[in-house]
Amino acid sequence: MQLIPCPWCGPRNEPEFSYGGEPAVRPIPAESVSDATWSDYLHFRANPKGRARELWCHSAGCGQWFIMERDTATHAIFATLKPGAAA
């Protein structure tokens, strides 16, 4: 069970959180991008083994989304950032 430092609430147990995917830049205007670009945004992932940048939500807590830098091979957590904060 991971101990996740919510940027608003502090460290809380894993079951309070939900993973929300890799941050992806939404192509705009969406209508004018190619099928391939849209598909890349929708489906394709870096899926790194090791240090990863992830979106998480403190869904059973404050409800806020944040960025977490985490090692997917060890579950070590390097940092959690409020959206918009510099990495």
């Binding site: 929300g20 941050p23 939404r26 939500c57 806020q64 989304w65 959206p83």
Partner: peptide
Amino acid sequence: LALLEAWHQTEYP
């Protein structure tokens, strides 16, 4: 509700 929050917080803050 979760979808609204997700879109608001991550894409349209």
